[in-house]
Amino acid sequence: MNIFDEIMHRLSSKTRIRSLFKDVHLEDLERILERLQAITEEKRTSYEAEQAKNKEKEESIEQIRQMLEAKGLSLSDLGVAEDDQPKKRRNVSKYTFEYVTKSGDTVQWYGSTTGRLPKDFQAYLDETGKKRLDCVIGEEA
């Protein structure tokens, strides 16, 4: 359980709160409450500012759409497809690796230079002190 979950658990019931603060003086408890109220107000102000910013942005988008519609244009006419967003692709190079197992068999394995390895291959690398790229015999098979 992380610290946030622990705090939420403690503060989720009056009984737990009472037991948590049973030895705390009233002045200290009031000071804690003032700080929590200040933080709450900061969060509320920040949230409202973010909401206002988002509303302004949505209104601007709607105005632009109406302008385009009035002119008979679409985003594709501007060279931008509405649904096209750049797709993030990982370019992971794959290789064919060759290694020798403990029993003496030569094995070829196809994979990348990152991620988990077959146990035999990891044992081979540990024994020989080689790196993965030292065992490459073919690229992008």
Results as ranks from 00 to 15, higher is better:
residue 1 M to C: 05
residue 2 N to Y: 07
residue 7 I to T: 13
residue 11 L to Q: 01
residue 12 S to T: 04
residue 21 F to N: 01
residue 22 K to I: 09
residue 22 K to Q: 12
residue 24 V to A: 05
residue 24 V to R: 04
residue 27 E to F: 11
residue 29 L to H: 00
residue 31 R to W: 01
residue 32 I to T: 08
residue 36 L to G: 08
residue 44 R to H: 04
residue 44 R to N: 02
residue 46 S to P: 00
residue 47 Y to V: 02
residue 51 Q to F: 07
residue 52 A to M: 03
residue 52 A to P: 01
residue 52 A to H: 03
residue 52 A to T: 00
residue 52 A to L: 08
residue 53 K to N: 05
residue 53 K to R: 13
residue 53 K to C: 06
residue 54 N to H: 05
residue 55 K to H: 09
residue 56 E to L: 01
residue 59 E to A: 15
residue 62 E to L: 05
residue 63 Q to L: 14
residue 64 I to C: 05
residue 64 I to H: 07
residue 64 I to R: 11
residue 66 Q to E: 13
residue 66 Q to D: 12
residue 67 M to K: 14
residue 68 L to M: 14
residue 70 A to S: 13
residue 70 A to E: 15
residue 70 A to Q: 14
residue 71 K to L: 14
residue 72 G to P: 00
residue 73 L to H: 11
residue 74 S to Q: 10
residue 76 S to K: 12
residue 80 V to H: 11
residue 81 A to E: 14
residue 81 A to I: 09
residue 81 A to G: 04
residue 82 E to S: 12
residue 83 D to M: 09
residue 85 Q to V: 15
residue 91 N to Q: 13
residue 91 N to A: 14
residue 91 N to R: 11
residue 94 K to C: 05
residue 95 Y to D: 03
residue 96 T to E: 11
residue 97 F to V: 07
residue 98 E to Y: 02
residue 100 V to E: 14
residue 105 D to Y: 12
residue 105 D to W: 07
residue 105 D to V: 09
residue 105 D to P: 05
residue 106 T to G: 03
residue 107 V to T: 06
residue 108 Q to P: 03
residue 109 W to Y: 15
residue 110 Y to H: 15
residue 111 G to K: 01
residue 118 P to A: 01
residue 119 K to I: 10
residue 120 D to I: 01
residue 120 D to G: 15
residue 121 F to L: 08
residue 123 A to K: 10
residue 124 Y to D: 01
residue 129 G to H: 04
residue 130 K to L: 15
residue 131 K to W: 03
residue 131 K to T: 07
residue 136 V to C: 00
residue 137 I to N: 06
residue 137 I to D: 06
residue 138 G to F: 01
